[in-house]
Computed example of a mutant assay.
Amino acid sequence: MQTIDRDSAGSARVAIVGGIHGDEPAGVRIVRRLADELDPLDAAGDDGTADGDGSGNAGSGGLVRLILANEPAIEAGTRYTDADLNRAFPGDADSDEYERALAPRLTAELEGFDAVLALHTSHSAPPPFAIFSDLTESVRRTVTGLPVDHVVDASGLRSTTLDSTIPHTVSVEVGRQGSEEAVEFGYEACLAFLRVHGALPDEPPTFSETVVAKGSEEVPKGGGEPHVHFANFEAIPEGAVFAEDDVYTHRVEEPGVVPILASEDGYDDIFGIYGRVTGVVKPPGEGDLRVYPRGEGDGNGDRDERRDSGAGGND
């Protein structure tokens, strides 16, 4: 793990993590680009780089911490070496599995931070979207300040991911794995993240309502030739087949279901996740810290209508 600390224009301590999965190069490239572009810490005696043991000089004010998490997997170009890091939290420092022992070290690097953004790509179709497990005020600022239309509430899914164990963490799926579009979108998303938390003063932050889809269950994959018939956040008609292979035919028997991380080849054991659009998160200062059911609110009907149409597959 490599930790690189950079200066912040504000007082918040924020972090961006790339390379949780070694075969997702966009996050690695984005972190390295930000490390080159952001100012070094004033208090640092060198370039602000630490070796992952927390020895970077953070000073007394805010900072931006950039992390390349799983260096052996990054070097090998594989998702992981021994275990999926994003399924290994909180981990075990004494484990013989590299990622399971890495997880508590990464946790220590993020302890006490005000906001964390974890970068991911997938084989799933666009659009990019965010993921949270606990809707804190910091998380609200992040998800409504990112240039995404959708955020997934993953609180009912796995409890072993970075965003489910590290407070104030949002994960963002920036695009298709290996694409240049993912790198460019992810970089812009990181700049937006830094702006909304006061770390980057180049321009004012922009906020907007963000549609929430609550993840409910993983959709298992069997074997043979896989087929997925609906894209992310596209409403699946009642009775339609979402995905199928030689083992499973997943027919949706109730209305309101949308796919999340829908992919034929992205995962060995699942086609993706079923979810339901539950409402919207409003920007800071425009409502309470909760998910507002669609149609409830303060007269932003045009914006809600635009996002509702997006949830129907028009992204």
Score class of each variant (00 low, 15 high):
R33P: 04
P90I: 02
N86G: 12
A50M: 12
E75I: 11
G52K: 14
Y80F: 14
S60R: 11
G62E: 05
L41W: 00
L41M: 15
T81Y: 09
D84M: 13
G48A: 06
S60E: 14
A83E: 10
P40C: 07
L38Y: 03
E37H: 10
F89L: 12
A76D: 15
D39M: 10
V64N: 04
L38E: 00
L38M: 09
D51S: 13
N86F: 09
P90L: 03
G54A: 06
P90H: 04
R79N: 09
G56Y: 13
E71K: 01
E37S: 14
A73Y: 00
V64H: 02
G54E: 06
A43S: 14
D51Y: 11
R87E: 10
G52E: 06
A88H: 04
A43Q: 12
R79F: 07
A88L: 08
T78Q: 09
A44H: 07
L63I: 07
D42I: 08
G52F: 14
R79A: 09
L85H: 02
D42W: 06
T49C: 07
D82H: 11
D42H: 08
A35W: 02
A43I: 10
L63K: 12
A50D: 11
T49W: 05
D82Y: 03
A88F: 03
S60M: 06
A76L: 14
N86S: 08
G54R: 09
G52A: 15
I67W: 01
G45E: 12
A44L: 06
A73W: 00
D51Q: 11
D53Q: 13
P90D: 01
N70K: 07
P90R: 03
D82W: 05
D84L: 15
A50H: 14
N70F: 03
L41H: 03
A76E: 12
D84K: 12
N86W: 05
V64E: 05
T78V: 13
L85C: 05
D51W: 14
L41A: 06
D47E: 13
I74N: 00
R65F: 04
R87V: 11
T78G: 01
G62D: 05
A50S: 13
P72N: 09
D47M: 15
G59K: 06
D84W: 14
